Amino acid sequence: MTVENLAAPQRRLRVLAAMSGGVDSAVAAARAAEAGHDVTGVHLALSANPQSFRTGARGCCTIEDSRDARRAADVIGIPFYVWDLADRFREDVVEDFVAEYQAGRTPNPCLRCNEKIKFAALLDKALALGFDAVCTGHYAKVLLHEDGSRELHRASDMAKDQSYVLGVLDERQLAHALFPLGDTVTTKDEIRAEAERRGLAVAKKPDSHDICFIADGDTQGFLASRLGKAEGDIVDESGAKLGTHEGAFGYTIGQRKGLRIGTPAPDGKPRYVLDISPVNNTVTVGPVDALDVTALTAIKPRWCGTAPAGEGAYTAQLRAHGDETPVRAELVGAELRVSFEEPVRGVAPGQAIVLYDGTRVVGSATIATTSRATAAA
């Protein structure tokens, strides 16, 4: 098994490079072109009104970003286009995000964007136009077997690894994916230095960390503007009312700040969100140890290759920048059942769980229910 080597490709590919306007995607496109591939750059217009997304040089979804991407393509010397995927993005990412919060779940829009936009809508269009692969600036790597099958693995630089948000890709999608930044130990400082050597103006452009379609970073305000305010009760584990809220969608499991509870806990310790019930618009809070999760079930599994058979030992990652934790997992019908060796906290329905076998990404699924050490969620 070998890493697909862009520096010495087995054949010249027609590559569509998704260029966000940030430094990572620009360097990825440059590396693919330097490797001898026939590269075309494309920027995805994801908003019918780009000004409704964040402004400033942040690396995604604004008019400035499309211009930065175009300038980078000019320097690299590749054709460049802007493709309008605003309708698909609104339906598959933004509306899904709002609906998940409305249902009391905590979604990951970046993961959904990779699944529905970059490696579904974009890839399907690319293949229809005769391209062989889509290239992105993600930090991950694809390993190629002698039989032609592929595996998704963590990036060599664990500090920049983004395999978690790529765990939704299936083997067909991996067969048409290029990640030029993930196959060498490359730090972000080195990427910026490389961009500068290549004459790319995005070399010093700040990274994007927020949700691209929430302009000011105020998730609660964004949701309230679409769902409206809906006052409800904040209660403790016994059901006693402690305060009120203006919308259960504004809370996530494990949240500590902004609870607006006037009555202190009997033990004087902080309280955390334990449960969100959209049915009666109630938020339940309690002590931190009540967040300890020992097991979970997850739905809609997607496998980066063949689905695992029987129960197995893996490590799991529960958030984009979270640590790995040892688990045992088994696919029962269409449901993934996972038990943790040690309790974990901050696990919420709607989040993705990604399973790993060493550095290999086995697959991902959406958390549906959790079992806690002290109570069932």
Rank of each mutant, 00 (worst) to 15 (best):
M1E: 14
M1K: 07
N5G: 06
A7N: 10
A7E: 14
R12T: 13
S20T: 03
G21L: 02
A26K: 00
A26Q: 06
A29F: 00
A30F: 01
A33K: 14
A35E: 04
G36A: 03
G41K: 01
P50C: 05
S52T: 13
F53I: 14
R54W: 13
A57H: 10
C61W: 08
I63C: 15
R67P: 02
R70H: 08
R71N: 06
A73Q: 04
D74P: 01
D74W: 03
V75R: 05
I76Q: 06
P79T: 10
P79W: 09
F89R: 06
V93N: 11
V98N: 06
Y101M: 02
G104D: 11
P107C: 11
L111K: 07
E115Q: 08
L122E: 05
L122D: 06
L122H: 03
L123P: 00
A128L: 07
A128I: 04
G130W: 03
G130V: 09
C135Q: 08
T136V: 10
T136S: 05
Y139G: 10
Y139A: 13
A140H: 01
K141T: 12
H145M: 12
E146P: 05
E146Q: 12
G148S: 09
E151Y: 00
R154L: 08
S156Y: 08
D161N: 03
S163K: 06
V165T: 14
D170T: 01
D170W: 00
A175C: 07
F179H: 10
F179T: 15
T184A: 13
V185R: 14
D189C: 09
E190N: 11
R192I: 06
R192P: 09
A193H: 03
R197W: 09
A201K: 10
A201D: 11
A203Q: 08
D207H: 06
D207Q: 12
S208G: 14
I211H: 00
C212F: 15
A215K: 11
A215E: 13
D218C: 09
D218W: 05
L227P: 02
K229Q: 13
E231N: 13
E231H: 12
A240E: 15
K241D: 10
K241Q: 10
K241V: 14
G243Y: 01
H245S: 04
G247V: 04
G250E: 12
K257I: 13
L259W: 00
I261Q: 09
G262T: 12
G262L: 02
A265D: 09
K269V: 04
K269W: 03
K269M: 07
Y272F: 05
V273D: 00
L274V: 04
L274I: 00
S277D: 15
P278K: 06
N281Y: 00
N281I: 05
N281K: 07
V283R: 02
T284M: 08
P287Y: 10
L291I: 09
A295I: 06
T297R: 05
A298D: 02
T306G: 11
P308C: 05
T315Y: 04
L318T: 10
R319P: 08
G322N: 05
D323P: 08
D323K: 12
R328E: 08
V332A: 14
V338W: 04
R345F: 00
V347P: 07
G350I: 12
Q351K: 07
A352M: 13
G358T: 04
V362W: 08
V362S: 15
G363N: 08
A365L: 04
T366N: 08
I367T: 10
T369S: 15
T370L: 13
R372L: 13
T374N: 06
